[in-house]
Design a protein around this nucleic acid. Structure first.
Lengths: 347, 347
DNA sequence: AGGCGTCCAGACAACGTTGTCATGGAGTGA
DNA sequence: TCACTCCATGACAACGTTGTCTGGACGCCT
């Protein structure tokens, strides 16, 4: 009958004229409750609009499960993160678990704050796209039996399951594809190399060049591009040079979009070949269609979440690495030939 | 010294040789603590790796705040939801609050389950993109002082702040734009009309037609399209008819993409005019650029979150409606003229 | 009838934390 | 010196729930 605040189990018990514990039994569907008592309790629950307090329950229960996990993404607004998020949510739903989310935005400090905040909320586990160089701050969580899974990038300083795309292989595929179409001067535009994925993709690029007997030119390696705008600017500058490349490999989503935009502005979109790392919506509708090495964020998210739940359910054993393969999708931009120069291909 | 589980305040107190309450005081930065005692406590906190349990704290504190809000979106994977999410997160961060998220996927049942789950986790407030026809199941939360804000679509059955785009006005703008470019046979492709936004946009469309003296033709109103694939199929069928329209108004993101894809397949993308509701990435890079009535999901999310936090902080007063205006962006597809027929426009 | 097991229900403590109150000592002013 | 205030610290209860224990009623077997 109190007006303020939420009704508690005690209120329900009082209204139903039973003990606190009996309400608990009914609410949790325990056995050994008579039908009439259960009915009285359910009635009281309905009339009061009682909602159990999951936190109080978690505090008291021996399993200590909060039925909540934490997901630390790069930026919930970008399509890769959103696809990961969606896959994790789907797996979580199968386990009746809900998800706390935050964007790291490339800041190690923010990463730590989010991990701490979710830990204080007693998340049953964490899935992290690590930004910082060191995740040893999580050692306490591991010790306290809160499992951690890294996804998209490797974590450092603690042992944990990790889900990675085959970044180097995928980048090498893209590069070989361009080489197979006759290109020898290929630029590699990528994110900051302190980001592990960017580094691995660049490694794949240069090793594919070397394998084809082409020496990578430093002036064609353009790192440090994080936004579409920066990439667009970099491509415009690239083609102001005296000896520009005939093909581009863009090692990240936003960079690909910026490069496409620049090529359109320059009117070179049908003359300069392009393969991007990571697929994006509408890539097939552009002119020409943008060839990409597609990652599979949905599989990555699902794999990470499934690994996390196995750990939560007590699976032991050493940390596992899961490699999710990439797939080259030819749509036109990657199959453009280099402009015919003095030399011919005739044997 | 216990190995299993997390260290508690009691463990810290024992190690520091002080009382439980003193640890609480230090951890919460209360005054009236001597420097040496504080130092001893902080030392013990660090060596044990102690993390406060926010749930136990919330349970005991008089303010009862969990520093967590719930966000119920249509689908965290789609760009509109992701942009909303991002804006809400940014505002939440300013308040040191974290966010529980879930996708409703158009299911009223799922909406209720998520609301219940977040309520059981004692979220301080909920932001909801409602899917179901009735939200009166939230009455108990309102009574328990948990504020609710609806965004993108109106809620029903309870009084709550609501953030809406000017759907009818925006749709009318798009329609007038097509009429101004000479079109009289315009098709309207939209989502299920039981979705409030779809209904409002269709109303805007038909009222703009009538205002221009054009009677809306039922055969050109194509509702019930929820995915890009369905929209693509519908457009292909539309142009198999004997007397197809000269322009399309697509009232939703995915529908626009499906329509663009169909027009490309038919080779009609430079001959049939198109204005879409809601902007999407790369719309400017397509051929022709896709003219749209852009919503502003970031402003919608921010407005909703700010309203929610004002309510959480105790602001009273009747529910407010916030209208976020749309903006027509001409990029080419909406400015295509109808094909010249027998009739001429010469006065 | 006696003994035993099963079913139902409640009393009580405990989870990890904070609000309230009590206590003792130091400082202040007359 | 005494009364008073202020500060530092601790003891204890309470938040809403569940695990454990106890006890009574009932049925069944010998």
């Amino acid at each position: 009958m109190t007006v303020d605040g939420r009704p508690t189990m005690n209120d329900v018990a009082r209204l139903a004229g039973v003990s606190l514990k009996s309400v608990s039994r009914v609410v949790n569907g325990e056995r050994h409750v008579s039908a009439p008592l259960a009915a009285r309790v359910r009635n009281a629950v309905d009339t009061l609009g009682y909602r159990p307090d999951l936190h109080a329950s978690t505090l008291r229960r021996t399993d200590r499960r909060s039925a909540t996990i934490g997901l630390l993404l790069e930026d919930v607004g970008n399509p890769f993160s959103a696809a990961l998020h969606r896959a994790v949510e789907d797996v979580a739903r199968e386990h009746d678990v809900h998800v706390l989310i935050g964007s790291i935005d490339g800041s190690p400090r923010r990463e730590g704050e989010l991990a701490r905040a979710f830990t204080m909320r007693r998340a049953d586990g964490l899935i992290i796209v690590p930004a910082g160089p060191d995740q040893s701050y999580l050692a306490g969580e591991i010790r306290a039996d809160t499992p951690v899974v890294f996804v998209d990038r490797p974590g450092h300083g603690i042992p944990a399951d990790t889900v990675l795309a085959t970044n180097a292989l995928g980048a090498a595929d893209a590069t070989r594809h361009l080489i197979a179409h006759g290109h020898r001067r290929i630029a590699c535009l990528g994110d900051h190399v302190r980001i592990a994925t960017a580094q691995r993709r660049r490694d794949g690029f240069t090793s594919a060049l070397r394998a084809a007997g082409i020496a990578p030119e430093v002036s064609l390696l353009l790192p440090g591009l994080h936004t579409a705008a920066a990439a667009e600017e970099a491509v415009l500058a690239l083609f102001r040079r005296p000896d520009p490349p005939t093909a581009l490999f863009t090692s990240q989503n936003m960079v690909t979009v910026g490069a496409v935009r620049a090529l359109h502005r320059l009117g070179l979109h049908r003359r300069v070949a392009l393969v991007g790392f990571d697929d994006f919506p509408l890539a097939d509708l552009l002119d020409p269609g943008v060839s990409v090495v597609a990652q599979d964020p949905a599989t990555m998210g699902r794999t990470a979440a499934e690994a996390l739940f196995r750990r939560i359910e007590g699976e032991g054993g050493p940390p596992t690495e899961f490699w999710i393969s990439t797939r080259l999708i030819a749509r036109g931009s990657g199959e453009l030939p280099p402009p015919a120069r003095g030399s011919s291909r005739v044997g």
